[in-house]
Design a protein around this nucleic acid. Structure first.
Lengths: 197, 197
DNA sequence: CTCGACACGTGAGGC
DNA sequence: TGCCTCACGTGTCGA
């Protein structure tokens, strides 16, 4: 490889228009190639794993990275937007080394003290939050909890899942009981000016 | 374009070894090209914005996406690992449409009720959490709060920042005062069996 | 020697 | 017409 060098063709002076266009053609083509290869080199430097790779396998690796990063981004984006209806949910984590974790979420109107109530719900379900993430936008909050049982690596069965779901539902009902005399039940853009965690 | 078609060269029957190697050479080269272009097509399908793009500009767009997705992934990863030393921090958000938000974080030992204390700290600083994220691993917790002032789009000045920092520091001190008689100050793998949010 | 990877120039086809 | 992109075959260098 490395036969490159942009060797100037030995066309000395005035040349026929055919030769001129031919020369500019090959020159433009070379320019195009070096644009592509420039971006390719950028990708090669951007990818940590692989310098010294076949241009083809490099592109394959780029495909892989784009796919996995897109998966992460989609996951983040999907968990970042609270929906407009109240809901709770519990589903199993699909981590390959997953030792019995679940992902639980609750979406409701924002209010002060919600975080504390969620904490109580978790302990009531005999669970423990390894990761928590909550997003508030326009007075509505979505909380995603990654839970495992307190005992340690005890497998989470249907009973534990329903316990978690019940505890979160109670948080939801508390929300409605408190706010039903102040706001409409749902679909109300209830912005608390001082809403906190 | 689309001059493709794998046209069989009109070499009829037995051919000289030179011709044989020449043919297999161009064939191999064609195979290589279609590997590259296959991955390129995959990338083109993977990228939502750009079908019908120059092979070069497509690669440029791929570079852009990899860069931005890598930024997101790094941000997630960096905020996901609690450090082993206690610390609090406040820094300005660098969103282009950013109307005065700050990113505040506190890293300390996990304990029940920490989430509630963080909530109180936020209201004490006259702030509001638009987004909260906390990660617990090995008994240590890192909480990242995206805050804005309660008044609405009031710009956050140094005074507000220091108020937030002070409130979070108080959370940290509460932690030490409560746990100093039960555990060593630091570097202790203190796993609460019932540690909650 | 053969294989695989690369840059090159060139003809074809699309605006 | 001219410019631009693409696929093709070829020369060449290194394993």
């Amino acid at each position: 490889m490395e036969t490159d060098g942009a060797a100037v063709l030995p066309i000395t002076a005035s040349c026929s228009p055919a030769a001129r266009s031919c020369r500019s053609h090959s020159e433009a083509e070379r320019k195009r190639r070096q644009r592509i290869n420039g971006h390719l080199a950028t990708l090669r430097s951007l990818l940590p794993s692989a310098a010294r790779m076949d241009k083809a396998t490099l592109l394959g690796e780029v495909v892989r990275h784009v796919r996995e990063l897109r998966g992460i981004a989609d996951e983040v984006a999907s968990s970042s937007v609270p929906c407009e209806g109240d809901e709770v949910g519990v589903e199993d984590e699909m981590v390959e080394g997953g030792c019995g974790r679940v992902r639980a979420w609750v979406c409701c109107a924002d209010r002060p003290g919600l975080m504390g109530e969620l904490s109580q719900a978790v302990v009531a379900a005999r669970a423990r939050a390894v990761r928590a993430e909550m997003t508030t936008v326009g007075g509505r909050t979505r909380s995603v909890l990654e839970l495992e049982l307190v005992g340690g690596s005890a497998a989470i069965d249907g009973e534990a899942r329903s316990a978690i779901r019940a505890a979160l539902r109670e948080v939801l009902l508390d929300d409605r009981n408190r706010s039903v005399d102040r706001f409409k039940r749902q679909r109300t853009s209830n912005r608390f000016g001082t809403a906190a965690l």
